[in-house]
Amino acid sequence: MSFNINRFLLLLKQEFNYWRRPALFLLLSVVVFLSCVAVFMRIIEEKQFLNYEFHITFFPLVLLGVGLVMVSACFRNLNTKEGRSFYLMTPASTEEKYLSKFFITFIVLPLLLIVTYFIFAFIMNQILMITSGVEIPSFRFFENDFVNEPTPYDWLKIFIVLHAVFFLGSITFRKLEFPKTMLVCFLILLVLGFVFNVIIFLFLPEFFNEVLAGKKPPFEPSESLVNFTEHTLSTIIKTAFYFVFPLVLWIAAYFKLIEKEA
């Protein structure tokens, strides 16, 4: 393991330069697309959408859609014949290369997307207000008007988890990293769902049959069980989902990178 701050900064400079054009192009495309949608909604007078659903729909689309596509492409050099030699011969350690790409996609990219969205929402709000008097709610990061809908902050937490998944995918797959990672995630979820159902069916057949039939479960859980599932278990699952799971995947991505560089 070796880490040199000067080499790391040089790699960051390279990464900034590499991403500058595609990021600008993607962000401009997104802003143009969202503006068109907003204007279109105004024309067809979808006030419901403009008033309440605009940020709920588009912020996750920008953060996860654009963000994860870019995360998926971050190790593309390593997957082409010419790029691979260039990447491997760059005088820096694996750790420096890994961390520079991690820093760009994990810190700079979401920050850039959030700031862009803030600016876009502000400008769009002004335009709509001046032209038609319709005001879309201002974009707030830690809250929204709906109790049951995730806030932008919640979406950022989900981005962090998915970053780990797509970061690993970008190292693992040689081509079409984004769709392949999506497909693998879908298949894993399908298998997990199936296994979970099989377990319930084998160990709690009555519960399984009643739930399938749309009836109430045959037994009422005790208060302590409810407390345990709603507090302790929920905290454990959340911690595992938001911290342990991505950490494990980032570590796996590092070892996968070492394997791929060999």
Binding site: S2, N4, R7, N77, T80, K81, E82, G83, S85, F86, M89, T90, P91, A92, S93, E96
Partner: peptide, 16 residues
């Protein structure tokens, strides 16, 4: 090793 790589330059046939 980065020190090794900073003293070696490789010009491949297929350029990046």
């Amino acid at each position: 090793h980065p020190d090794f790589l900073s003293d070696v330059y490789f010009v491949p046939e297929e350029l990046y």
